[in-house]
Design a protein around this nucleic acid. Structure first.
Lengths: 213, 213
DNA sequence: TCACAATTTGAACGATGGTTCAAATCGTGA
DNA sequence: TCACGATTTGAACCATCGTTCAAATTGTGA
Protein backbone atom coordinates (compact mmCIF):
# COMPACT_ATOMS: atom_id res chain seq x y z
CA UNK A 1 0.00 0.00 0.00
CA UNK A 2 1.39 3.34 -1.05
CA UNK A 3 2.31 5.63 1.82
CA UNK A 4 -0.16 8.45 1.52
CA UNK A 5 0.90 10.94 4.11
CA UNK A 6 3.84 13.27 3.93
CA UNK A 7 4.63 13.30 7.62
CA UNK A 8 7.54 11.20 8.83
CA UNK A 9 6.49 7.59 8.66
CA UNK A 10 5.29 6.15 11.93
CA UNK A 11 7.96 3.67 12.92
CA UNK A 12 6.34 0.35 13.59
CA UNK A 13 8.35 -2.84 13.19
CA UNK A 14 6.80 -4.68 10.26
CA UNK A 15 6.35 -7.92 12.14
CA UNK A 16 3.76 -10.42 11.01
CA UNK A 17 1.77 -9.54 14.08
CA UNK A 18 1.83 -5.82 13.32
CA UNK A 19 0.67 -6.36 9.76
CA UNK A 20 -2.16 -8.58 10.91
CA UNK A 21 -3.18 -6.12 13.61
CA UNK A 22 -3.36 -3.24 11.14
CA UNK A 23 -5.57 -5.32 8.87
CA UNK A 24 -7.83 -6.27 11.77
CA UNK A 25 -8.04 -2.66 12.94
CA UNK A 26 -8.95 -1.43 9.46
CA UNK A 27 -11.60 -4.08 9.09
CA UNK A 28 -13.05 -3.35 12.53
CA UNK A 29 -13.00 0.38 11.82
CA UNK A 30 -14.92 -0.15 8.57
CA UNK A 31 -17.55 -2.25 10.29
CA UNK A 32 -18.13 0.27 13.05
CA UNK A 33 -18.04 3.23 10.66
CA UNK A 34 -20.67 1.46 8.58
CA UNK A 35 -22.85 0.44 11.49
CA UNK A 36 -22.79 3.64 13.52
CA UNK A 37 -21.87 6.25 10.95
CA UNK A 38 -18.56 7.93 10.47
CA UNK A 39 -19.12 10.82 12.81
CA UNK A 40 -20.63 8.78 15.58
CA UNK A 41 -17.63 6.49 15.71
CA UNK A 42 -14.73 7.22 18.04
CA UNK A 43 -11.38 5.60 18.56
CA UNK A 44 -12.72 3.92 21.70
CA UNK A 45 -15.52 2.32 19.67
CA UNK A 46 -13.09 0.90 17.15
CA UNK A 47 -10.82 -0.41 19.89
CA UNK A 48 -13.76 -1.93 21.74
CA UNK A 49 -14.77 -3.77 18.58
CA UNK A 50 -11.47 -5.64 18.97
CA UNK A 51 -11.46 -5.89 22.74
CA UNK A 52 -8.49 -3.57 22.94
CA UNK A 53 -7.89 -0.08 24.28
CA UNK A 54 -7.87 3.08 22.24
CA UNK A 55 -4.27 3.78 23.17
CA UNK A 56 -3.18 0.73 21.20
CA UNK A 57 -4.52 2.11 17.97
CA UNK A 58 -1.90 4.85 18.20
CA UNK A 59 0.84 2.28 18.11
CA UNK A 60 -0.19 1.40 14.54
CA UNK A 61 -1.75 4.64 13.25
CA UNK A 62 -0.60 8.20 13.65
CA UNK A 63 -4.10 9.48 14.49
CA UNK A 64 -7.75 9.08 13.58
CA UNK A 65 -7.33 10.77 10.21
CA UNK A 66 -4.50 8.38 9.40
CA UNK A 67 -6.75 5.42 10.20
CA UNK A 68 -9.70 6.82 8.25
CA UNK A 69 -7.48 7.57 5.26
CA UNK A 70 -6.17 4.01 5.28
CA UNK A 71 -9.75 2.76 5.22
CA UNK A 72 -10.63 4.97 2.28
CA UNK A 73 -7.34 4.21 0.53
CA UNK A 74 -7.97 0.50 0.66
CA UNK A 75 -11.50 0.87 -0.64
CA UNK A 76 -10.42 3.13 -3.46
CA UNK A 77 -7.56 0.82 -4.38
CA UNK A 78 -10.01 -2.02 -4.73
CA UNK A 79 -12.34 0.04 -6.90
CA UNK A 80 -9.50 1.30 -9.09
CA UNK A 81 -8.11 -2.20 -9.58
CA UNK A 82 -11.52 -3.51 -10.52
CA UNK A 83 -11.96 -0.59 -12.90
CA UNK A 84 -8.62 -1.24 -14.61
CA UNK A 85 -9.52 -4.87 -15.08
CA UNK A 86 -12.86 -4.00 -16.65
CA UNK A 87 -11.36 -1.34 -18.89
CA UNK A 88 -8.74 -3.82 -20.08
CA UNK A 89 -11.41 -6.27 -21.19
CA UNK A 90 -12.57 -6.25 -24.81
CA UNK A 91 -16.29 -6.16 -23.98
CA UNK A 92 -18.44 -3.50 -25.64
CA UNK A 93 -18.34 -0.10 -23.96
CA UNK A 94 -21.88 -0.29 -22.63
CA UNK A 95 -21.21 -3.66 -21.08
CA UNK A 96 -18.03 -2.40 -19.48
CA UNK A 97 -19.87 0.52 -17.93
CA UNK A 98 -22.52 -1.88 -16.69
CA UNK A 99 -19.93 -4.10 -15.07
CA UNK A 100 -18.25 -1.08 -13.45
CA UNK A 101 -21.59 -0.14 -11.93
CA UNK A 102 -22.27 -3.60 -10.58
CA UNK A 103 -18.80 -3.95 -9.10
CA UNK A 104 -19.03 -0.53 -7.47
CA UNK A 105 -22.34 -1.25 -5.76
CA UNK A 106 -21.09 -4.64 -4.65
CA UNK A 107 -17.85 -3.34 -3.25
CA UNK A 108 -19.24 -0.41 -1.31
CA UNK A 109 -22.08 -2.45 0.15
CA UNK A 110 -20.96 -6.01 0.58
CA UNK A 111 -17.32 -5.83 1.46
CA UNK A 112 -15.42 -4.30 4.31
CA UNK A 113 -13.54 -2.06 4.18
CA UNK A 114 -15.67 -0.68 1.46
CA UNK A 115 -18.44 1.70 2.31
CA UNK A 116 -16.17 4.57 3.14
CA UNK A 117 -14.42 4.94 -0.15
CA UNK A 118 -14.64 8.54 -1.20
CA UNK A 119 -17.92 9.02 0.58
CA UNK A 120 -16.82 11.47 3.20
CA UNK A 121 -13.44 12.69 2.13
CA UNK A 122 -14.41 15.97 3.77
CA UNK A 123 -14.08 14.28 7.15
CA UNK A 124 -10.34 14.10 6.51
CA UNK A 125 -7.78 16.78 7.20
CA UNK A 126 -4.84 17.64 4.98
CA UNK A 127 -2.63 16.00 3.81
CA UNK A 128 -4.77 12.85 3.98
CA UNK A 129 -7.62 14.59 2.23
CA UNK A 130 -5.59 15.56 -0.79
CA UNK A 131 -4.20 12.07 -1.18
CA UNK A 132 -7.62 10.49 -1.10
CA UNK A 133 -9.17 13.20 -3.27
CA UNK A 134 -6.62 12.47 -6.00
CA UNK A 135 -7.43 8.76 -5.97
CA UNK A 136 -11.11 9.60 -6.00
CA UNK A 137 -10.65 11.94 -8.95
CA UNK A 138 -8.80 9.20 -10.80
CA UNK A 139 -11.71 6.87 -10.24
CA UNK A 140 -14.24 9.45 -11.46
CA UNK A 141 -12.14 9.95 -14.57
CA UNK A 142 -12.54 6.28 -15.40
CA UNK A 143 -16.28 6.81 -15.72
CA UNK A 144 -15.96 10.02 -17.67
CA UNK A 145 -13.44 8.58 -20.11
CA UNK A 146 -15.56 5.49 -20.66
CA UNK A 147 -18.59 7.64 -21.37
CA UNK A 148 -16.56 9.81 -23.74
CA UNK A 149 -15.39 6.71 -25.55
CA UNK A 150 -18.96 5.55 -25.90
CA UNK A 151 -19.95 8.91 -27.35
CA UNK A 152 -17.08 8.67 -29.85
CA UNK A 153 -18.17 5.18 -30.82
CA UNK A 154 -21.72 6.37 -31.24
CA UNK A 155 -23.20 3.93 -28.75
CA UNK A 156 -23.70 6.65 -26.07
CA UNK A 157 -25.19 10.07 -26.38
CA UNK A 158 -24.85 12.78 -23.76
CA UNK A 159 -24.18 16.49 -23.85
CA UNK A 160 -21.75 16.41 -20.98
CA UNK A 161 -19.90 13.18 -20.12
CA UNK A 162 -18.71 14.62 -16.84
CA UNK A 163 -22.21 15.45 -15.64
CA UNK A 164 -23.37 12.01 -16.74
CA UNK A 165 -20.48 10.42 -14.84
CA UNK A 166 -21.36 12.41 -11.72
CA UNK A 167 -25.02 11.40 -11.99
CA UNK A 168 -24.04 7.75 -12.23
CA UNK A 169 -21.57 7.92 -9.36
CA UNK A 170 -24.12 9.75 -7.25
CA UNK A 171 -26.65 6.99 -7.74
CA UNK A 172 -24.03 4.38 -6.88
CA UNK A 173 -22.56 6.09 -3.83
CA UNK A 174 -25.94 6.95 -2.31
CA UNK A 175 -26.69 3.24 -2.01
CA UNK A 176 -24.70 3.11 1.23
CA UNK A 177 -27.30 5.41 2.71
CA UNK A 178 -30.23 3.06 2.15
CA UNK A 179 -29.10 -0.39 1.06
CA UNK A 180 -28.82 -2.94 3.83
CA UNK A 181 -27.55 -6.48 3.38
CA UNK A 182 -30.19 -9.05 4.11
CA UNK A 183 -33.01 -7.34 2.26
CA UNK A 184 -35.08 -8.62 -0.65
CA UNK A 185 -32.27 -8.01 -3.08
CA UNK A 186 -28.56 -8.32 -2.63
CA UNK A 187 -26.09 -5.70 -3.77
CA UNK A 188 -25.41 -7.51 -7.04
CA UNK A 189 -29.07 -7.37 -8.05
CA UNK A 190 -29.28 -3.72 -7.07
CA UNK A 191 -26.14 -3.11 -9.11
CA UNK A 192 -27.54 -4.88 -12.16
CA UNK A 193 -30.78 -2.90 -12.05
CA UNK A 194 -28.80 0.32 -11.67
CA UNK A 195 -26.69 -0.70 -14.65
CA UNK A 196 -29.77 -1.32 -16.78
CA UNK A 197 -31.28 2.04 -15.93
CA UNK A 198 -28.11 4.11 -16.20
CA UNK A 199 -26.59 2.52 -19.29
CA UNK A 200 -29.98 2.67 -20.99
CA UNK A 201 -30.06 6.37 -20.25
CA UNK A 202 -26.91 6.80 -22.28
CA UNK A 203 -27.60 4.40 -25.12
CA UNK A 204 -31.26 5.29 -25.68
CA UNK A 205 -30.66 8.70 -27.09
CA UNK A 206 -27.73 7.53 -29.19
CA UNK A 207 -30.14 5.12 -30.88
CA UNK A 208 -32.84 7.69 -31.43
CA UNK A 209 -30.20 10.11 -32.73
CA UNK A 210 -28.69 7.95 -35.45
CA UNK A 211 -32.04 6.49 -36.45
CA UNK A 212 -30.78 2.92 -36.72
CA UNK A 213 -33.02 0.64 -34.73
CA UNK B 1 -44.81 25.20 10.14
CA UNK B 2 -46.05 22.05 11.80
CA UNK B 3 -44.60 21.43 15.23
CA UNK B 4 -42.47 18.36 14.81
CA UNK B 5 -41.23 17.54 18.27
CA UNK B 6 -43.21 15.95 21.04
CA UNK B 7 -41.50 17.76 23.89
CA UNK B 8 -43.33 20.69 25.45
CA UNK B 9 -43.21 23.57 23.04
CA UNK B 10 -40.46 26.08 23.68
CA UNK B 11 -42.28 29.21 24.80
CA UNK B 12 -41.07 32.11 22.73
CA UNK B 13 -43.29 35.13 22.23
CA UNK B 14 -44.23 35.18 18.55
CA UNK B 15 -43.15 38.76 18.06
CA UNK B 16 -42.25 39.99 14.60
CA UNK B 17 -38.67 40.17 15.78
CA UNK B 18 -38.68 36.57 17.00
CA UNK B 19 -40.09 35.27 13.72
CA UNK B 20 -37.52 37.22 11.75
CA UNK B 21 -34.69 36.03 13.99
CA UNK B 22 -35.66 32.36 13.58
CA UNK B 23 -35.69 32.80 9.83
CA UNK B 24 -32.29 34.48 9.89
CA UNK B 25 -30.87 31.77 12.16
CA UNK B 26 -32.15 28.99 9.90
CA UNK B 27 -30.73 30.66 6.84
CA UNK B 28 -27.37 31.25 8.50
CA UNK B 29 -27.30 27.68 9.77
CA UNK B 30 -27.93 26.35 6.27
CA UNK B 31 -25.17 28.46 4.81
CA UNK B 32 -22.63 27.36 7.40
CA UNK B 33 -23.75 23.71 7.24
CA UNK B 34 -23.30 23.87 3.50
CA UNK B 35 -19.96 25.65 3.58
CA UNK B 36 -18.27 23.72 6.37
CA UNK B 37 -20.18 20.48 6.46
CA UNK B 38 -22.78 19.41 8.93
CA UNK B 39 -20.46 17.78 11.43
CA UNK B 40 -17.87 20.51 11.37
CA UNK B 41 -20.45 23.14 12.23
CA UNK B 42 -21.12 24.08 15.83
CA UNK B 43 -23.61 26.36 17.49
CA UNK B 44 -20.87 28.94 17.95
CA UNK B 45 -20.22 28.96 14.18
CA UNK B 46 -23.87 29.54 13.40
CA UNK B 47 -24.11 32.32 15.97
CA UNK B 48 -20.92 33.94 14.69
CA UNK B 49 -22.38 33.98 11.17
CA UNK B 50 -24.96 36.42 12.60
CA UNK B 51 -22.62 38.29 14.95
CA UNK B 52 -24.45 36.89 17.93
CA UNK B 53 -23.56 34.49 20.75
CA UNK B 54 -24.38 30.81 20.88
CA UNK B 55 -26.47 31.31 24.00
CA UNK B 56 -28.95 33.34 22.01
CA UNK B 57 -29.73 30.44 19.72
CA UNK B 58 -31.20 28.64 22.72
CA UNK B 59 -33.74 31.39 23.15
CA UNK B 60 -35.30 30.42 19.82
CA UNK B 61 -34.46 26.68 19.51
CA UNK B 62 -34.57 23.94 22.10
CA UNK B 63 -31.17 22.53 21.09
CA UNK B 64 -28.97 21.79 18.08
CA UNK B 65 -31.16 18.91 16.93
CA UNK B 66 -34.18 21.19 17.04
CA UNK B 67 -32.38 23.70 14.85
CA UNK B 68 -31.14 21.07 12.42
CA UNK B 69 -34.57 19.50 12.18
CA UNK B 70 -36.12 22.88 11.39
CA UNK B 71 -33.60 23.26 8.58
CA UNK B 72 -34.42 19.86 7.16
CA UNK B 73 -38.13 20.33 7.70
CA UNK B 74 -38.17 23.54 5.73
CA UNK B 75 -36.21 21.99 2.88
CA UNK B 76 -38.42 18.93 2.75
CA UNK B 77 -41.55 21.05 2.89
CA UNK B 78 -40.34 22.95 -0.14
CA UNK B 79 -39.58 19.77 -2.03
CA UNK B 80 -42.91 18.16 -1.14
CA UNK B 81 -44.85 21.25 -2.17
CA UNK B 82 -43.03 21.40 -5.47
CA UNK B 83 -43.67 17.68 -5.97
CA UNK B 84 -47.40 18.06 -5.31
CA UNK B 85 -47.60 20.90 -7.80
CA UNK B 86 -45.86 18.85 -10.48
CA UNK B 87 -47.98 15.77 -9.81
CA UNK B 88 -51.12 17.86 -10.07
CA UNK B 89 -50.16 19.06 -13.55
CA UNK B 90 -51.50 17.22 -16.57
CA UNK B 91 -48.12 16.88 -18.30
CA UNK B 92 -47.03 13.41 -19.50
CA UNK B 93 -45.50 11.22 -16.84
CA UNK B 94 -41.98 11.39 -18.26
CA UNK B 95 -42.12 15.15 -18.35
CA UNK B 96 -43.38 15.29 -14.79
CA UNK B 97 -40.51 13.11 -13.61
CA UNK B 98 -38.11 15.34 -15.51
CA UNK B 99 -39.47 18.44 -13.85
CA UNK B 100 -39.25 16.81 -10.41
CA UNK B 101 -35.60 16.08 -11.08
CA UNK B 102 -34.81 19.62 -12.16
CA UNK B 103 -36.63 21.19 -9.22
CA UNK B 104 -34.88 18.86 -6.78
CA UNK B 105 -31.40 19.70 -8.04
CA UNK B 106 -32.25 23.40 -8.06
CA UNK B 107 -33.65 23.43 -4.57
CA UNK B 108 -30.92 21.47 -2.85
CA UNK B 109 -28.17 23.43 -4.56
CA UNK B 110 -29.35 26.97 -5.20
CA UNK B 111 -31.57 27.80 -2.30
CA UNK B 112 -30.96 28.08 1.39
CA UNK B 113 -32.02 26.36 3.50
CA UNK B 114 -31.88 23.58 1.05
CA UNK B 115 -28.91 21.34 0.92
CA UNK B 116 -29.69 19.58 4.14
CA UNK B 117 -33.03 18.11 3.22
CA UNK B 118 -32.91 14.45 4.07
CA UNK B 119 -29.20 14.25 3.42
CA UNK B 120 -28.08 13.43 6.89
CA UNK B 121 -31.14 12.51 8.84
CA UNK B 122 -28.88 10.16 10.78
CA UNK B 123 -27.31 13.20 12.42
CA UNK B 124 -30.60 13.76 14.22
CA UNK B 125 -31.75 12.18 17.46
CA UNK B 126 -35.25 10.99 18.20
CA UNK B 127 -37.92 12.31 18.04
CA UNK B 128 -36.67 14.74 15.43
CA UNK B 129 -35.27 11.92 13.34
CA UNK B 130 -38.54 10.07 13.03
CA UNK B 131 -40.39 13.21 12.06
CA UNK B 132 -37.94 14.02 9.31
CA UNK B 133 -37.65 10.41 8.18
CA UNK B 134 -41.40 10.25 7.65
CA UNK B 135 -41.35 13.37 5.51
CA UNK B 136 -38.43 11.98 3.60
CA UNK B 137 -40.19 8.69 3.01
CA UNK B 138 -43.21 10.57 1.72
CA UNK B 139 -40.99 12.38 -0.75
CA UNK B 140 -39.39 9.13 -1.94
CA UNK B 141 -42.83 7.65 -2.45
CA UNK B 142 -43.64 10.45 -4.87
CA UNK B 143 -40.85 9.19 -7.13
CA UNK B 144 -41.78 5.55 -6.77
CA UNK B 145 -45.46 6.15 -7.45
CA UNK B 146 -44.68 8.27 -10.48
CA UNK B 147 -42.44 5.53 -11.86
CA UNK B 148 -45.08 2.91 -11.17
CA UNK B 149 -47.63 5.02 -12.99
CA UNK B 150 -45.28 5.29 -15.94
CA UNK B 151 -44.86 1.53 -16.00
CA UNK B 152 -48.63 1.08 -15.95
CA UNK B 153 -49.01 3.54 -18.81
CA UNK B 154 -46.33 1.71 -20.77
CA UNK B 155 -44.02 4.70 -21.14
CA UNK B 156 -41.57 3.44 -18.50
CA UNK B 157 -40.06 0.03 -18.07
CA UNK B 158 -38.25 -1.12 -14.97
CA UNK B 159 -38.21 -4.31 -12.95
CA UNK B 160 -38.31 -2.52 -9.64
CA UNK B 161 -39.74 1.00 -9.39
CA UNK B 162 -38.40 1.43 -5.87
CA UNK B 163 -34.83 0.60 -6.88
CA UNK B 164 -35.18 2.95 -9.85
CA UNK B 165 -36.49 5.69 -7.56
CA UNK B 166 -33.56 5.20 -5.19
CA UNK B 167 -31.08 5.36 -8.05
CA UNK B 168 -32.59 8.62 -9.25
CA UNK B 169 -32.69 10.16 -5.80
CA UNK B 170 -29.12 9.07 -5.19
CA UNK B 171 -27.94 10.84 -8.29
CA UNK B 172 -29.85 13.97 -7.29
CA UNK B 173 -28.82 14.07 -3.65
CA UNK B 174 -25.17 13.44 -4.35
CA UNK B 175 -25.01 16.69 -6.28
CA UNK B 176 -24.57 18.59 -3.00
CA UNK B 177 -21.27 16.79 -2.63
CA UNK B 178 -19.77 18.11 -5.84
CA UNK B 179 -21.86 20.85 -7.38
CA UNK B 180 -20.79 24.38 -6.54
CA UNK B 181 -22.67 27.49 -7.65
CA UNK B 182 -20.61 29.66 -9.95
CA UNK B 183 -19.28 26.86 -12.12
CA UNK B 184 -19.67 26.32 -15.85
CA UNK B 185 -23.26 25.18 -15.44
CA UNK B 186 -25.88 26.28 -13.00
CA UNK B 187 -28.05 23.88 -11.06
CA UNK B 188 -30.88 24.11 -13.57
CA UNK B 189 -28.67 22.93 -16.41
CA UNK B 190 -27.30 20.11 -14.28
CA UNK B 191 -30.86 19.19 -13.40
CA UNK B 192 -31.97 19.15 -17.02
CA UNK B 193 -29.08 16.92 -18.06
CA UNK B 194 -29.83 14.60 -15.16
CA UNK B 195 -33.45 14.51 -16.23
CA UNK B 196 -32.49 13.59 -19.80
CA UNK B 197 -30.26 10.75 -18.67
CA UNK B 198 -32.51 9.34 -15.98
CA UNK B 199 -35.83 9.62 -17.75
CA UNK B 200 -34.26 8.15 -20.87
CA UNK B 201 -33.12 5.21 -18.80
CA UNK B 202 -36.73 4.46 -17.96
CA UNK B 203 -38.36 5.18 -21.30
CA UNK B 204 -35.73 3.50 -23.50
CA UNK B 205 -36.50 -0.03 -22.54
CA UNK B 206 -40.24 0.57 -22.61
CA UNK B 207 -39.82 1.53 -26.26
CA UNK B 208 -37.66 -1.45 -27.10
CA UNK B 209 -40.09 -3.69 -25.21
CA UNK B 210 -43.29 -2.81 -27.02
CA UNK B 211 -41.56 -2.59 -30.37
CA UNK B 212 -43.36 0.59 -31.39
CA UNK B 213 -40.88 3.17 -32.57
C1' DT C 1 -39.42 58.90 32.26
C1' DC C 2 -40.27 54.46 33.92
C1' DA C 3 -41.63 49.68 34.36
C1' DC C 4 -41.45 45.57 32.42
C1' DA C 5 -41.07 42.17 28.86
C1' DA C 6 -38.11 40.73 25.28
C1' DT C 7 -33.66 39.71 23.96
C1' DT C 8 -28.72 39.16 24.27
C1' DT C 9 -24.43 38.28 26.49
C1' DG C 10 -20.60 35.45 27.77
C1' DA C 11 -18.55 32.86 31.27
C1' DA C 12 -18.96 28.55 33.18
C1' DC C 13 -20.02 23.73 33.30
C1' DG C 14 -20.18 18.96 31.97
C1' DA C 15 -19.61 15.52 28.60
C1' DT C 16 -17.15 13.70 24.95
C1' DG C 17 -13.44 12.17 22.33
C1' DG C 18 -8.65 12.46 20.44
C1' DT C 19 -4.29 11.68 22.12
C1' DT C 20 -0.27 10.73 25.22
C1' DC C 21 2.80 7.94 27.75
C1' DA C 22 4.76 5.53 31.90
C1' DA C 23 4.20 1.20 33.42
C1' DA C 24 3.01 -3.38 32.71
C1' DT C 25 2.76 -7.43 30.06
C1' DC C 26 3.89 -10.50 26.44
C1' DG C 27 6.79 -12.81 23.13
C1' DT C 28 11.10 -14.38 21.59
C1' DG C 29 15.86 -15.64 21.11
C1' DA C 30 20.01 -16.80 23.43
C1' DT D 1 15.95 -18.40 32.94
C1' DC D 2 16.80 -13.90 31.45
C1' DA D 3 17.24 -9.77 28.69
C1' DC D 4 15.20 -7.08 25.62
C1' DG D 5 12.14 -5.59 22.06
C1' DA D 6 7.29 -5.62 20.88
C1' DT D 7 2.86 -4.69 22.36
C1' DT D 8 -0.85 -3.37 25.39
C1' DT D 9 -2.96 -1.00 29.11
C1' DG D 10 -5.68 2.61 31.04
C1' DA D 11 -5.65 6.74 33.46
C1' DA D 12 -4.94 11.33 32.62
C1' DC D 13 -4.85 15.40 29.92
C1' DC D 14 -6.59 18.78 26.82
C1' DA D 15 -9.56 20.79 23.51
C1' DT D 16 -13.95 21.21 21.83
C1' DC D 17 -18.72 21.76 21.88
C1' DG D 18 -23.53 21.64 23.50
C1' DT D 19 -25.94 23.88 26.86
C1' DT D 20 -27.25 26.79 30.89
C1' DC D 21 -28.48 30.94 33.13
C1' DA D 22 -27.74 35.23 35.95
C1' DA D 23 -26.96 39.58 34.62
C1' DA D 24 -27.12 43.10 31.36
C1' DT D 25 -29.10 45.43 27.60
C1' DT D 26 -32.66 46.76 24.50
C1' DG D 27 -37.24 47.83 23.08
C1' DT D 28 -41.81 49.30 23.91
C1' DG D 29 -46.04 51.04 25.81
C1' DA D 30 -48.07 53.84 29.25
Amino acid sequence: MVQIVTDPILKVPETAHAIEQKRRILEAASRVFRRQGLHATGMRDIAAELDMHAGNLYYYFRNKHDLLAFCQEEALTGLLEAAEEILASDAPTGERLGRLIVVHVERVNEQTPGSLAHLEVEALEEPWRRAIQERRDAYERVYRLLIERGVEEGCFQTNDPRVAAMAILGALNWTVKWYRPGGRKDASEIGREFAELLVAGLTARAKSRDGSH
